[in-house]
Simulated assay, not measured.
Amino acid sequence: MDINTKHRLVVLVGSVREGRFGPVVGSWIAGQAREHGAFDVEVVDLADVGLPLALPDAYPSVAGASYPRPAAMAPLTAALEAADAFIMVTPEYNHSYPASLKAAIDWHYTQWAAKPVAFVSYGGAVGGRHAVLHLENVMTELHAVTIRDGLAFPLNRVPWEDGRPLDPEIPGYAKKLLEQLSWWTSALRSAREAAPYPG
């Protein structure tokens, strides 16, 4: 695929905790996406973003408008705006996802609409699937399209070494996720270019 036709993919690393495993998982799935060939990949690590957790009390006065964002958030907003698709990398904290990821989502609105979102999760006995179930509901509310096949890494059962999972079947699962993401990205990008999304 020609570089000019590649889809712009943002891999969003959601945890900001000290000692987190997210950057390892994010780097690996970003590498898989680059090898896939359909995507121009940017990794956005929320630990590098000036991200207030609290939003203003008042809702924006115009339907669909966003809150006034702090200047430090501008690179994140620009990356989300330019993206055609997203992969959210999330741990599971107390059967849900991190406050940092919720804040990044809530500070934005139109940037998610009519774009596909895939999930790569990790942690606990079910590999972060509880977190993904919550994220699917949130992203649907924001008019994003969630991808059915994700990746979940129960870290007590899936060993990693040198920045990659050792299970030889996992790259095949990643390819399936990326194929679905690429299909939806093409379809939704064409639709957005043909007519504004009526959200």
Rank of each mutant, 00 (worst) to 15 (best):
A125R: 13
T146K: 03
L51Q: 01
A194V: 08
H143F: 12
E193H: 13
A79V: 02
F119V: 02
E161P: 11
A152W: 01
V126M: 12
V132R: 02
G163F: 08
W184Q: 08
V62L: 10
P198Q: 11
T140P: 14
L76R: 04
I87K: 01
F21G: 05
R69A: 15
Y173Q: 07
V44H: 12
A144P: 02
A131W: 00
D167H: 12
E81Y: 07
P165T: 06
A174D: 07
N4G: 14
L178N: 01
P70Q: 08
S121Y: 01
N4I: 05
R192L: 01
G26I: 02
E92T: 03
Y109P: 05
I29R: 00
K102L: 01
A63M: 15
L181S: 01
D48L: 15
R157L: 12
P23W: 00
E161W: 10
G172A: 06
V126Y: 09
P68A: 09
G127C: 07
K176E: 12
W160M: 00
D57Y: 15
D40F: 12
P98T: 09
Q32G: 02
T185A: 03
V43N: 00
A47E: 14
Y173K: 14
D162F: 08
E42V: 14
K175W: 12
G150S: 09
P198Y: 04
A195F: 08
F39K: 01
K102T: 05
P56L: 01
P91A: 04
E141F: 15
D84N: 04
A144Y: 06
G26C: 13
G14L: 08
A65Q: 03
M73D: 06
D84C: 03
D40I: 14
A144E: 00
Y173E: 13
I147L: 12
D40C: 13
G22K: 04
W160R: 03
D162P: 08
A83Y: 06
K6V: 11
G31K: 05
V25E: 02
T77M: 07
L188A: 07
D48T: 12
V43Y: 00
N94T: 10
V132A: 09
H134W: 06
A191Y: 13
I170Y: 02
A187K: 13
R129D: 13
A113I: 12
L55M: 15
V25Q: 00
A38G: 08
P56E: 11
